[in-house]
Lab assay of single mutants.
Amino acid sequence: MDTYKLILNGKTLKGETTTEAVDAATAEKVFKHAANEHGVHGHWTYDPETKTFTVTE
């Protein structure tokens, strides 16, 4: 398992979190669910070198 990071750049919610996942696709599902639960919808990017997802509203 690897550690993946999410950076939230929402209009009303900003922050960072991490998750352990077997691959980037699994981490993305976890992060998108969490972002949706917090009402953050926007443009997603992924940097494979740093294993970091970013969502920007």
Score class of each variant (00 low, 15 high):
V40E: 02
K29M: 11
D47R: 04
K29S: 10
D47Q: 06
T12W: 14
D47W: 05
V40Q: 03
T3D: 05
T45V: 08
H33A: 15
L13D: 05
G15F: 15
T56F: 07
T52Q: 04
A35P: 01
E57W: 06
T50H: 07
M1I: 10
A25K: 10
G15K: 14
A21R: 02
H38D: 05
E28A: 09
E37K: 12
M1T: 12
T19V: 14
A24P: 09
E57D: 08
T56N: 08
Y4R: 02
T54A: 05
K14W: 12
E37Y: 10
G39I: 08
T54G: 02
F31M: 02
T17P: 03
E16P: 04
E28D: 04
L6C: 12
T26R: 05
V22S: 11
T19N: 03
T19M: 12
D47A: 06
D2N: 14
V55R: 00
L6H: 01
L8W: 14
H33C: 11
K32N: 05
V30Q: 09
F31G: 01
A27F: 01
T52N: 02
V30A: 09
G39Q: 06
H33I: 14
T17E: 11
W44M: 05
A27R: 00
G15V: 15
F31Q: 00
D23L: 03
N36Y: 13
H43L: 14
P48M: 07
N36Q: 13
V55A: 03
L6Y: 02
T56A: 05
H33W: 10
K51Y: 07
A21I: 02
D23G: 03
A35N: 03
T26S: 13
T52Y: 03
Y4D: 03
E57N: 04
A21M: 02
G42S: 02
A27G: 01
A35M: 14
A34R: 13
T56D: 08
G42R: 01
K51D: 00
P48A: 12
L8D: 01
A35F: 07
Y46K: 00
H38A: 15
G39Y: 05
K51Q: 05
E28C: 15
L6Q: 02
T45F: 08
A35I: 09
K29R: 13
A27M: 01
L13Y: 15
K29P: 02
A21N: 02
T54V: 07
E57G: 04
